[in-house]
């Protein structure tokens, strides 16, 4: 059933793609705007996914199958202005196009935390301090894992919670995916370099997802990854370029120092630049953590403070892929009930 109602989705990552697919399947006229040259967002950069080690591109391929002719995709789209006319919107793009919308879905997602802000870890200064995204780039590109001087690392440390749960840099929330990503990447490193010694420095292991705990146990038991409870206080460079890590082994109650050839910083989520920009354009409310504030934390999780504007994905909070996909489908049905003025729309809390 074709509808004359128009929905514009801003952001072509996981949530934007999946919500657009469902809205188009319901018969709406959907335009998906993406600022980059192609769809996929962060997903396109991750080789294997926790907890199953499925290839990221398989999920991307699945999501793409939903983007059929009813979804008009505009890549390299730069939004200049959004006007409101009664309950409808007019979206002006930099290339002169003007889009009309009866509802807008904001799926502007997250950016990775800029690890340079944690000065004490020396990212951008010490050659062998990298981020989880840099390590994933090794995996995706198929490049050999080497230190800056071209040596196969004999030991690698993973620092959890970089840019998360840290009042000092202004992010008090948990980014949810980093613990299990460290476990995933540890296992992948062990698969590639069987002799490498791996240390994970964590505050809590937040293995909340189904199968996460099993993956954690596999990392310990099968792969011998060492988990050390304590937040790294500083990383320093030794004269040979290896990294000296200072941490408290909180379970032994003593400070500890150890050398690793490579230190991987598990960078968390921060609201994306796009989230800030679109939020300001549409006068959307931000929560205390600078992600979008949803109308209600339990039941109106896709609804914004502006009538006709909805959210999905990591623009409201850090989410892993599974959650971003279910959130997108929820947003699609929320938008449909808004456009059709279904009775479920009239509930209050």
């Amino acid at each position: 059933m074709k509808s004359s109602k128009k929905v514009v989705t801003i952001g072509g990552g996981i949530a934007g793609m999946e919500a657009s697919s469902f809205l188009a399947a319901m018969g709406y006229d959907v335009t998906l705007l993406e600022k980059a040259g192609e769809l996929g967002g962060h997903l396109a950069k991750w080789e294997k996914l926790f907890p199953t080690m499925r290839l990221g591109k398989e999920v991307l391929n699945f999501l793409s199958q939903g983007i059929y002719e009813n979804v008009k995709v505009l890549c390299n789209a730069f939004i200049e202005r959004i006007d409101r006319e009664l309950d409808d919107f007019r979206i002006y793009l930099a290339d002169g196009k003007v889009l009309e919308a009866n509802a807008i879905l904001v799926t502007t997602g997250y950016d990775l935390f800029d690890a340079r802000k944690k000065e004490e870890y020396g990212y951008g200064i010490y050659d062998n301090v990298i981020t989880s995204a840099d390590l994933e780039e090794f995996f995706s590109s198929g490049k050999e894992i080497r230190t800056a001087s071209g040596k196969t690392p004999a030991s690698v440390g993973f620092v959890h919670c970089v840019g998360s749960r840290d009042q000092k840099i202004g992010n008090v929330y948990c980014s949810k995916v980093c613990c299990v990503t460290a476990v995933k990447q540890s296992i992948e490193l062990k698969e590639k370099l069987s002799d490498v010694k791996i240390f994970c420095f964590y505050m809590d292991m937040r293995m909340y997802g189904m199968h996460f705990e099993a993956l954690y146990k596999e990392a310990q038991e099968k792969w011998g990854v060492q988990f050390i409870r304590g937040r790294v206080s500083e990383a320093c460079e030794n004269s040979d370029g290896s990294i000296l890590v200072k941490v408290e082994d909180t379970l032994a109650g003593r400070p500890m120092r150890l050398t690793v050839d490579m230190l991987v910083l598990m960078v968390g989520f921060v609201p994306s630049e796009g989230t800030k920009k679109i939020g300001n354009m549409l006068n959307l409310e931000f929560g205390p953590n600078r992600f979008f504030k949803t109308r209600d934390q339990h039941v109106l999780t896709n609804v914004s403070n502006v009538k006709g504007v909805f959210f999905a994905g990591a623009c409201t909070a850090p989410k892993e892929i599974t959650h971003a996909i279910t959130d997108a489908r929820a947003a699609a049905s929320t938008i449909a009930s808004y456009l059709e003025q279904n009775s479920v729309e009239k509930r209050t809390i």
Partner: peptide, 10 residues
Amino acid sequence: MRVQGKQNIW
């Protein structure tokens, strides 16, 4: 060691 990184902090 990349001095540029330190310069950014300075």
